[in-house]
């Protein structure tokens, strides 16, 4: 199988590292060669963060560059647009419609762009937009946005539902497993 590329983008602190850990562990268990690349440190503090997950028969580069991502999972609305250039021609974007103002918007030196999802669609991208924060709250914890989105990602991959649940059990702290399974189901079924 040729290498598949998933990018997880969002705002530092939204839990994208757990999402990439979950994907990495699931795909490894499925027998793929997997590389996951993250950035820690400075950029984690509320900045724009990006994690790369690549899997296939043999993966070389740990990073994804322009025009290579099969799927971009965006934890925040405009972060999807920031990395649009990384999307493959027929790639898919799964985006949380939650808006988190970046500092230039807070200080008034820039405006939060409107109509960004329509613009991405107009550019030919397939965009699946969901309110993951609302679903996470329904699941019982606003912090489970990451797992709601993984539930949505699962729709587009040919891996049995139960395997995803096993990966959640394996990678999430025991006390949060039930809430996260609920969050996953809500993301999957929305």
């Amino acid at each position: 199988m040729s290498t598949k590329n998933i990018m997880i983008v969002g705002v530092g602190g939204q839990g994208s590292l757990l999402a990439s850990k979950l994907l990495g562990s699931l795909l490894t268990d499925e027998g793929f060669d997997v590389k996951v690349s993250e950035v820690h440190g400075m950029s984690q503090r509320g900045g724009s963060v990006v994690t790369y997950v690549r899997f296939g028969d043999k993966v070389y580069s740990p990073v994804i560059s322009e025009g290579e991502a099969d799927v971009i999972v965006s934890f925040e609305k405009i972060e999807a647009a920031r990395y649009l250039a990384c999307l493959k021609k027929d790639g898919k974007i799964i985006v949380n419609t939650q808006e988190i103002d970046p500092m230039p918007v807070i200080t008034g030196s820039a405006e939060y762009p409107s109509g960004i999802i329509d613009e991405m669609r107009a550019k030919g991208a397939f965009v699946d937009a969901i309110d993951a924060l609302e679903l996470a709250k329904q699941a019982g914890n606003a912090k489970s946005v990451n797992i709601v989105l993984m539930g949505r990602v699962a729709k587009y991959f040919d891996i049995p539902y139960e395997k995803w649940l096993l990966a959640i059990e394996k990678n999430v702290k025991p006390q949060f497993v039930e809430i996260n399974k609920k969050a996953f189901a809500l993301g999957y079924n929305v």
Binding site: A81, A110, K123
Partner: peptide
């Protein structure tokens, strides 16, 4: 690949 025409504000 493609990009949006709208400028996306930086997120430091």
């Amino acid at each position: 690949n493609t990009a949006t025409d709208t400028a996306i504000p930086i997120r430091p």
